[in-house]
Design a protein around this nucleic acid. Structure first.
Lengths: 155, 155
DNA sequence: GAACTATTGATTATCCCTGACCTAGAAAAT
DNA sequence: ATTTTCTAGGTCAGGGATAATCAATAGTTC
């Protein structure tokens, strides 16, 4: 059985290329055309956006339906420390499971927010606090992550 | 029953070899395939990762499920092949108080073994765990410091 | 035999992809 | 101006393919 191509990944790469080639920090595209380009169903595009271009990954999506419809993908830019901290606080919210924390750290490293070593240190600390994951722990994890990332951002 | 094969150790060695053979500081593999290669159940791979490639061991794991699933093992290098590092490792091995840890962190930063941000991260984490500090917590503090410093030092 | 380590398999969770149905906005028809 | 129609994007459930988790069991070490 031949290995199916990894559509989601291919589309992700294509979008990332578009974003790099452009001067602004956003691109506009048409869902239908992109789906045709990759010979897939339009909703596949939504899946890619949801799973790879969410705020957690540093992007915002705007779109419009009907005639002249479009999808706009914007890179989130935080120039001040406060903006960064607010952004993190939004992402973390009230609570975070260990799994979610790991994903967040992965995304933050990919974006260059933190180094691999810093990610390692934070993950160790989070695991330490996590222990048996209950709702109570999720809040502790969130608090810990927020203070650790906060310190990093302001230094 | 007969002797166990000690699969876990074999798989560990295999992964370490892969990591050495490769230029990057990570490898990607498929859990299912690896399990087949060693004629074992897939969850055995998770056991190996949990027991030998945890963040405390200096590794980070990223994975995806479903089609095109994979497990990515990242080795976080802390290239510190100094002799003094070994000395410090001994100190940590003995266990240390909060104050000792802070002095140690200061020294490590002064010698360039950890960055200012890394030092802050460790201090924040420790302070977080210390929070409601009772005698019981002191042990947790010691464990955390040992984990965080240990991974930097012995790696 | 107690405590630690290793192995297994059943169950659960996640990822990717599709297609059926839903909704918003603009143009055409009235 | 209002209604209708058309066009393009959104949402959701579900199914196949992996990986993760967990508890039970077995082996090892001391």
């Amino acid at each position: 059985m031949d290995r199916m191509r990894n559509l989601a990944r291919d589309i992700e790469r294509y979008i990332l290329e578009l974003l790099e080639d452009v001067d602004e920090d956003f691109i506009s595209l048409r869902r239908k055309e992109l789906a045709e380009k990759f010979s897939c169903v339009p909703s596949q595009i939504n899946y890619v956006l949801r799973s790879r271009f969410s705020p957690e990954h540093g992007y915002l999506i705007e779109s419009r339906r009907g005639e002249h419809g479009y999808i706009k993908i914007l890179r989130i830019t935080c120039d001040s420390s406060d903006e960064k901290i607010n952004h993190i606080a939004d992402l973390v919210g009230e609570g975070l499971s260990l799994r979610e924390a790991q994903r967040l750290l992965e995304a933050l490293q990919a974006r260059g927010f933190i180094t691999a070593r810093e990610r390692l240190l934070i993950e160790i600390a989070v695991r330490h606090v996590a222990g048996d994951s209950t709702v109570v722990q999720n809040r502790k994890i969130a608090d810990l992550i927020k203070s650790m990332l906060g310190v990093i951002i302001t230094n």
